[in-house]
Amino acid sequence: MSYLDVLKNAEDMVSPGISACQGCGGELILRRVLQIAGPNTIVGVPPGCMAGAGVVGWNYQNGMKIPVHIPLLTNIASFLTGVSQMYERKGRLDVNVVAVAGDGGTADAGFQALSAAAERDEKMLYVCYDNEGYMNTGYQRSSTTSLGSRTSTTPIGDVINGKRQHQKYVPLILAMHECSYVATVSPSDMPDMIRKIEKGLEASKKGFAYIHAFSPCPTGWSYKEDMGIEVAGQAVRSNLFPLWERDEEGFRLKKNPSPISVREFVEGIGKFRTLTEKDKDALQELADRRYATVAALAGMAE
């Protein structure tokens, strides 16, 4: 079945009206993941943009058609460990246990629980929508914020010009946990993304599956609402966000035969407006190194 046929027949599990910003990458990723997972799913959405957008509901009202809980920012992988083990005990491994968390709940405050659950190879699919910052609380820096980004806590000034550190490359760290499945996805490559979500769900029946999604954010990154797919595609083409997966057979990297420069990617994105030439060089080196590292892991010659 083509990815379009999959989507055509997949019911939306999320309330049709949620207060995610216009053109939100996180909303797109959340809806796709849960469409593929379907009604026989329990999902945890920790504090962050998606939870803030109302997907867990208000008052006595539900935010989804499936059971959804907002765990703590710090414990999504641990909370779902308990859920997953109980469902295995009940003999109901058919129930999908899914986390959809931002980069704060994944790479920072939630990282300890995530790392432990991955190491224990708990049976769940964990999807991180990485918009490179704490967007729900007003675009503050996170450990996945790219070098030079303007955020509320790394503002532009004469003394310090945006974030001064490179982002932490979470998907490769997760792959080193030797858990069942790890992949990176971008909404700009929807067939690849849908395939990997399907694969991740399948892998979650055997162990821990982790998907790291590039999640463009028009509000926090300052670009026009209709540019999200373009931005995500440029990130992939620049090699800052290579698309790869790691399963029991090892690493596979989606080849990028004609990469664009990082300079081309950052053009027009507000948060990169004040990048220095030095910053751009550093980001270019990072992209080259990242692609080469994954290519080497995938056994692909440069």
């Binding site: 309330s15 009206g17 949620i18 207060s19 006595y60 009202q61 539900n62 935010g63 989804m64």
Partner: peptide, 21 residues
């Protein structure tokens, strides 16, 4: 709502839908 039903904070009355249009 009967008292028992909402001992724990949870949804029970349909879906929360914003008029995003």
């Amino acid at each position: 709502k009967p008292k028992r039903k909402h001992i724990t904070p949870k949804g029970g009355e349909g879906m929360y839908i914003l008029d995003t249009a």
